[in-house]
Design a protein around this nucleic acid. Structure first.
Lengths: 105, 105
DNA sequence: CATACTATAGCACTGAGTGCCATAGTATGC
DNA sequence: GCATACTATGGCACTCAGTGCTATAGTATG
């Protein structure tokens, strides 16, 4: 299966697909499938990493929580390993990691 | 309290704060507080709105779910009003609404 | 000293989100 | 015509993420 070859091959395929889309050989809906297929799988975040991330963004737990639309209490729990973010929360965190807090404002 | 005056006044204050920051009169950490304070409060999404949003982005439930890092099952429930997104999920959805699916890729 | 922001901590609660599976509609191609 | 595949709905059982509140303590700041 193609899935074995992550990133490099997938990136190449995605590029090709994007070209096809540009030229008009592939509609947006089909293009989306390739986008999703090539999305880097999101990996779990350790409490340390979350705290470091927030520190990097120079925000208090309260402010950080406001950006993510969650409670300060939850951010505290994440950083102490009492709860673990997943699903949409994890996605948001990795978005902040990749693009910074401003990107989710 | 200042909080009464949303958006317009807040926007003005935020602008002023941003200027101060640019000039060097305010550090990044303090600036963040103003950012958070001026963030538009996120409002709940109706099933209809979610479905319309996904349609606008021309993605199937499965693909849409992949972008948000949630299960297709959940997207279906959102759109049928069986479950209601909140917290980080809601934030992600409103991000997509404002900036498009690409913005969260 | 008083005020305010920060973070930790504990506890009770609930519904969001998962996972799996069966069903059905609709294309698509052989 | 039949087979394959993607799409979406629906149900059911489960669990833990996330909320809300409150008390505590540390650390600045005036």
């Amino acid at each position: 299966m193609v899935k074995k070859y992550r990133s490099k091959v997938m990136a190449a395929i995605h590029e090709t697909a994007a070209d096809l889309h540009r030229v008009g050989g592939m509609d947006k809906k089909t293009m989306r499938k390739f986008d999703a297929l090539c999305l880097t799988p999101i990996q779990a975040m350790t409490p340390k990493k979350i705290r470091a991330l927030r520190a990097r963004e120079k925000a208090s737990q309260t402010v950080f929580a406001a950006y993510l639309n969650v409670t300060p209490s939850l951010v505290s729990k994440w950083e102490r390993g009492e709860k673990y973010p997943q699903g949409a929360s994890l996605k948001l965190l990795s978005l902040v990691e990749k693009k910074g807090l401003e990107a989710v404002a």
